[in-house]
């Protein structure tokens, strides 16, 4: 049963990741990424990390990919055109390179044999154990990651803002001539 579930979701993950990488429309690629993330979440649960599986769906599929979709629609990205002739050779190099990479990894593991996974202990799966370790042994990384997220929020807000004194008047602050006009109008009224 477990093998069956693994094979289905592994195949789904591979097929959808191929679609992510090869499809020309960015929206389709993003939705295939959701399918990939879902399959990987199921594999996490199979490996005895249900908390990480739920987090994967909550953070990755539920927030990060939505952000991707937002940006794609905001920038109104169209389907990619055909690759220009000069770049088509890149694919012929990249794919054999990737296959060699997989081959090397596979070779390592076929040599070592295929060690079975240890049985799932309740201790490994337990949420309490994970949380305890997070707040005792790994407290410093936890706090640093919190700081990192704060920095990322501030940085993203600043990076995506329009400049306040944009020449086309599209900034959040009103243009000086408009302010002067309004002030003059208000003063003219008794």
């Amino acid at each position: 049963m477990e093998t069956f579930i693994f094979l289905i979701f592994a195949a789904l993950a591979v097929v959808s990741s191929l679609v992510v990488v090869m499809h020309r429309s960015p929206v389709y690629a993003t939705m295939s990424l959701v399918v990939t993330l879902f399959s990987v979440a199921v594999l996490f649960v199979l490996l005895g990390a249900p908390f990480l599986g739920a987090l994967q769906i909550l953070i990755y599929a539920g927030a990060i990919v939505v952000l991707f979709l937002f940006v794609i629609m905001l920038l109104n990205l169209q389907k990619e055109g055909e690759a220009a002739g000069r770049w088509r050779g890149q694919l012929w190099v990249a794919i054999p390179g990737a296959l060699i990479f997989i081959g090397m990894v596979g070779l390592v593991f076929w040599r070592q044999g295929a060690p079975d996974l240890q049985p799932l202990t309740p201790d490994l799966v337990s949420l309490k154990g994970l949380a305890t370790a997070l707040f005792t042994d790994y407290l410093l990384p936890f706090e640093i990651v919190g700081l990192l997220l704060l920095v990322a929020v501030i940085g993203a807000t600043v990076a995506a803002r329009r400049a306040p004194d944009a020449a086309d008047g599209s900034g959040p602050l009103p243009r000086e001539d408009f302010v002067a006009e309004e002030t003059a109008r208000k003063e003219a009224r008794p």
Binding site: P50, A54, L58, G62, A63, S126, L127
Partner: peptide, 18 residues
């Protein structure tokens, strides 16, 4: 009856955006 009860609910309901 999973250990991650409420988290699973929140995770699945966040998919409603799509």
């Amino acid at each position: 009856p999973v250990d991650t009860g409420v988290l699973l609910f929140l995770a699945l309901s966040s998919l409603a955006v799509y």
